[in-house]
Design a protein around this nucleic acid. Structure first.
Length: 424
RNA sequence: GGAGAGGUGGCCGAGCUGGCUGAAGGCAGCUGCCUGCUAAGCAGUUGACGGGGAAACUCGUCCCAGGGUUCGAAUCCCUGCCUCUCCGCCA
């Protein structure tokens, strides 16, 4: 959420930002409502002040044995007017807030202006793309061959977009999870956590999933809860509504969690295999930081995520998203895409974003920089570190051998009882 | 799931026979004084949000949340959420 005062004094910046993000927002309408709101406040507060004076006057009269009934009947009318204004005010504020929730964050100045994926800018590549002298297979074939991926049964149990991993691939997943958590919690300085997988509406609004992306979320109607699409939601909202004390930043937390996404409207694209599914596992990193440091923190967050792929020896590229591809809440975002040899495709396994104070403001998360200072909104960031299915797919495809085996990345072997390869 | 108790400021904790309570008292914090240092002591001070104002300042709102009663609610009524205790159930 943007600061209403900021919108009031910089309407053009906000309009430009929304346009570049491809969002249709009527800023003038919000400003008009804001004007109306402030007019009402002026009127109603005058009346309230009057009432407060009268109220103590009534108390005094009663104490002195005088008859306050004239004043009371006069105040009855004043109170009616107040509640009239209060209703108008509440309506205006509700309306403003409802609209504010649809205003996207402003892209950072370093973000390239553009519309689609094609306008994203590659900033680096890492690793060698392998080439084999045999016919490489996509991961779904490999998975089936080694008895590690069972997509048909996922569909029969839960519908399309769900799958079982089993045997060696299940072991590989578990090894990856442990490896990633050990890396981030051990070397990168994050506190490890387990988080709620079902969260309330406030949390979903706080990080910006709703209202805009509501259709992509699984909702448990009977309890008013949502299944998290990423651990970001639980982690970032952890201190929502609080004022963090001086010295408590930066906070760096990481967590493993399943992620649930309806992927509404994406049928037909990239649906083979396990690269686009409704439920997957991911290790997520979240940072809550002081505003001045957030862009440095973004770079180190990105490095933390890249390190995972480097240690796994998987080739990848990093792209900075253009304004049109940038998510609603983000001010800047890097995507990390791993190369999958069998599909000959770059698969997004991580998005590292700086939200500046957009999420903090939405969830009313504040921070007191020093004793006695006024609270400010901290900046929040998050990045996947990294998403599992696509990483598994990349390992299966890049590490396949001619005779149908998979070489296990060296860093994972100690997590798999020393196993060096899986397969026949 | 059943029965009871409760949710007050950074924390503890009064108020809850409606008005003078943004809220006693204590603790913690800050500022002076005092002191060889520390501790103790004395005095003062310490919330968030919004409106107006260049500013000093001023007005309004906030005692879990949302409604209601009233001239007026932390205090009365209703609904919801959460916490605690006991019982039941359960990985």
């Amino acid at each position: 959420m943007l600061d209403l005062k900021f919108i009031r004094s910089n309407p053009d910046i906000v309009k430009e930002a929304a346009k570049n993000k491809g969002e249709k927002i009527d800023i003038d309408e919000i400003l008009e409502l804001d004007r109306k709101r402030r007019d009402i406040i002026g009127e109603v507060e005058k009346l309230k002040s009057e009432r407060n004076t009268a109220t103590s006057e009534i108390a005094r009269m009663k104490k002195e044995g005088r008859d306050p009934s004239t004043l009371i009947s006069k105040m009855k009318k004043v109170s009616d007017r107040i509640s009239g204004y209060d209703n108008e005010l509440r309506d205006a504020e509700t309306e403003i807030n409802r609209k504010l929730l649809w205003v996207p964050n402003i892209p950072h100045e370093s973000v390239p202006v553009g519309q689609t994926d094609a306008d994203n800018v590659e900033i680096r590549k890492w690793g060698e793309l392998k080439s084999f002298d045999f016919k490489v297979r996509p991961h779904w074939e490999i998975g089936e061959m080694i008895g590690g991926l069972d997509i048909p049964h996922g569909a029969s149990v839960s519908g399309s977009g769900f799958y079982f991993s089993a045997g060696p691939v299940a072991k590989l997943e578990r090894a990856l999870i442990n490896f990633m958590l050990d890396l981030h919690a051990g070397e990168h300085g994050y506190t490890e956590a387990y988080v709620p997988y079902l969260v309330g509406e406030n949390a979903m609004r706080g990080t910006g999933q709703i209202p805009k992306l509501e259709d992509d979320m699984y909702r448990i109607e009977s309890d008013g809860l949502y299944l998290i699409p990423t651990a970001e939601v639980s982690l970032t909202n952890i201190h929502a509504g609080e004022i963090l004390p001086p010295g408590s930043l930066p906070k760096k937390i990481c967590a493993f969690s399943p992620c649930f996404r309806r992927e509404a409207g994406s049928y037909g694209k990239e649906t083979r295999g396990i690269v686009r599914v409704h439920q997957f596992h991911k290790v997520e990193m979240v940072k809550i930081v002081e505003p001045e440091t957030s862009y440095n923190e973004l770079e180190s967050l990105l490095e933390n995520a890249e390190r995972v792929l480097q240690l796994l020896d998987l080739p990848y590229r990093v792209r900075v998203l253009c304004t049109g591809d940038l998510s609603f809440s983000a001010a800047k975002c890097y995507d990390i895409e791993v190369y999958a040899l069998g599909m000959d495709a770059w698969l997004e396994v991580s998005s590292c974003s700086n939200f500046e104070d957009f999420q903090a403001r939405r969830m009313n998360l504040r921070y007191r920089p020093e004793k006695g200072a006024r609270p400010i909104f901290p900046h929040t960031l998050n990045g996947s570190g990294v998403a599992l299915p696509r990483t598994v797919a990349a390992i299966l495809e890049n590490n396949q051998t001619k005779d149908g085996q998979i070489l296990i990345p060296e860093v994972l072997r100690s997590y798999m009882a020393g196993m060096e390869r899986i397969g026949i």
